[in-house]
Design a protein around this nucleic acid. Structure first.
Lengths: 193, 193
DNA sequence: GCTAAATTTGAGCGATCGTTCAAATTAATA
DNA sequence: TATTAATTTGAACGATCGCTCAAATTTAGC
């Protein structure tokens, strides 16, 4: 039943990640997938349908990475490496520094409803993974027992967004590695109620 | 020499802020400004030209707000109020929570070169204002004398971005006000070299 | 009030958008 | 190999894109 979807999804991810949802045209996708429009429409239904599969796959991978951090014995140490990753991509993949979800969210008002609700779900899903990291770090003693887990998870997601957005706008993303230290340090800082 | 540009720039700001650069069509702008295409083109040259004036005006206002924080006697206290502002807009203006510059930056790969370079300049310009805040807070004693000013300024810009991005994705932005306390608190936290 | 200059109008240009579907091709079955 | 079913092809559709420019209108100077 048709050509392998996985490869197409990965190729489409590249395009959407580089150009955004609005900025990507079906003809960009036709070129990237080396498929004619009818093929893409029979496999994915629409541009939105293809994007939703891209988003689902992307979110799954990212969620898996964060859960791997949560499941390690030294979650805070692994968190460091996870946060450092996007700072060390080579220039040709500079667009991959920014989170695909955050990038798409910027076009909010113009997105189809289906994309909007999936973006919300994706953000919530990733927040759960961040929460698992906090939870685990608390249980290993790397974080204090009284840390507010939900707030810290949302805050951590915010730091993730901040770092990747800033890294997108500087010439040398690796020079922002001190931010990772600051994030981990601030995790043990004040959490006033 | 033509109709008042200021009003048009403000009306165009509304549209670009809601729909983004790519998502905004000339017909959206024609409706918002109540002008026919020829008028807009004679006044601003192109969609890009109009957007550049919008961006310049927007950046100027935001820069002024941050400099007002820097020039106050209690910059950290004023910073708190400045950061809280976007959390209390009413639902009809929800799109104004996100920073227009950050929003436009998400479409990076598809932007005209002129917009790209102006975005970079705008971010750098605002960072200078954040730096002035840090500098002033250090001189008033609200921050420690050994705080790394440049890093703290970039970090603060990151927190500004994080808060506004997160606030865009939750149903009740005001519920994130604790983040403002965390930001001010972390400003006095560790700044390891 | 008349003329000339400045400004605004809006129909419409060529290009591109997401999408469709009859026809051609390929794969599966007997 | 003949027949059918599944898949892919690609020309083309209507809508919309940023933008142009001759004509109509408004403004300015005398």
């Amino acid at each position: 039943m048709g050509y392998p979807r996985e490869q197409s999804i990965q190729q489409a991810t590249e395009v959407f990640w580089l150009k955004g949802y609005l900025g990507t045209g079906m003809r960009d996708l036709q070129t990237a997938l080396d498929k004619r429009p009818g093929s893409i429409y029979s496999a994915f239904g629409s541009k939105e349908g293809l994007y939703l599969e891209v988003l689902s796959h992307y979110t799954g991978v990212l969620h898996g990475q964060i859960m791997a951090v949560a499941n390690s014995d030294t979650p805070l140490q692994q968190l460091r490496e996870f946060l450092l990753l996007p700072l060390t991509v080579d220039d040709s993949a500079a667009h991959k520094i920014q989170c695909l979800i955050v990038k798409t969210q910027a076009d909010w008002a113009e997105l189809p409803q289906g994309v909007k609700s999936e973006l919300q779900s994706a953000l919530a899903h990733l927040r759960e993974a961040f929460q698992a990291v906090i939870f685990k770090a608390r249980s290993t003693g790397e974080l204090a027992a009284d840390i507010p887990v939900e707030r810290a998870a949302m805050w951590l997601q915010g730091q993730f967004i901040a770092m990747r957005t800033l890294a997108t706008s500087v010439e040398s993303p690796a020079s922002l590695s001190w931010m990772v230290d600051k994030i981990v340090s601030d995790l043990s800082g004040e959490w006033a109620q």
